[in-house]
Design a protein around this nucleic acid. Structure first.
Lengths: 166, 166
DNA sequence: CTTGGAATGTCAACAAGACTGACGTAAATT
DNA sequence: AATTTACGTCAGTCTTGTTGACATTCCAAG
């Protein structure tokens, strides 16, 4: 993978053709990325939105509704529909904030954690296989490019999560 | 969760934590990936589905409906809704197949090509910036991992496109 | 203490984009 | 002549997203 054969750097990797390949790679890869959890979810009364909510609640237990709203980038009405069904089915519970009682802190129940694990295992297993096949150097490049593609605000949230709370 | 740090290669990049970061990177990056064209489309009577159709018709002019169906992975009813509006607005035209008259070969009109360019320019500009920031080695890794994440069938389609027809 | 604003939740209505199922037509294949 | 293929269309459903309006609860500033 050595670069810069010429004087400055070879910018051949920035051709329109190459960029377009990248666009298409994102398209097809994202389909694969969501395929396994989607398969599990279909049939249940849940969808991708539930998966995302459960993922980030698992990731940051005790997060507030407003926090989740910012991470997911949807309206509260949309998130609320999802959360309501998760409450009703006993997958997520909301505890009123101690300091600020307006806030609801969200936690997975044992049942919710079980679903999270099932979904994430499926998704991670594909990602792990891809990582293993590609090798550590490729993985580092993968993450670098993805990070560069994010909006600055998204990147900030991503990085906050990255170091993240337990 | 650490694996076999000894012997051959360090497998530290395969920890659950690392994989999860990859999952989240995909989530946030895909948001960025679609953000610019979505912004352009909003207000027009079009959405992401129209963008995808226009992209792949541009990519493979003369492709058939069935072909597009396979690439996009949607039902014909869903695609048909999109194509109909693109026909009506004069962005795409369908020519009956010469050899097989059941087939419709799809082409962008000048107007359609203009929209394609507008959308793709926006999307590619972000991708190009990310590529430039990350460098050629990272880009190669990026593509390697994405390719490994695809379903085998999707990968085949992707690779066919990659070398692709004119 | 009162009031303003913030955080949350709820109801109603709606749209995009996906899905299934059923049916029709024309053309190619057998 | 019969079957299969490629495409189109009608009708209905589902998930996920949107806006707008309004209630509740509660912190904090006047």
């Amino acid at each position: 993978m050595a670069e810069a054969p010429t004087g400055g750097e070879s910018l051949l990797f920035l051709t329109d053709e190459n960029i377009r390949k990248g666009v298409e790679a994102m398209f097809f890869a994202y389909r694969g990325f969501t395929a396994d959890p989607d398969r599990i979810l279909e049939g249940m009364a849940y969808g991708r939105a539930h998966h995302r909510a459960v993922h980030f609640i698992h990731r940051s237990p005790g997060t507030t509704v407003g926090n989740l709203l910012a991470i997911l980038g949807v309206t509260k009405q949309s998130l609320n529909r999802v959360l309501r069904s998760l409450f009703e089915d006993g997958l997520v519970e909301a505890r009123v904030g101690k300091k600020d009682k307006r806030e609801r802190h969200l936690y997975l129940t044992a049942k919710g954690a079980a679903l999270e694990r099932e979904l994430s295992d499926a998704q991670r297993s594909r990602m792990r296989a891809a990582y293993r096949a590609a090798g550590p150097a490729a993985v580092q490049g993968f993450r670098t490019v993805l990070e560069a593609m994010m909006d600055p605000e998204q990147r900030k949230q991503y990085q906050t999560l990255k170091e993240g709370q337990p």
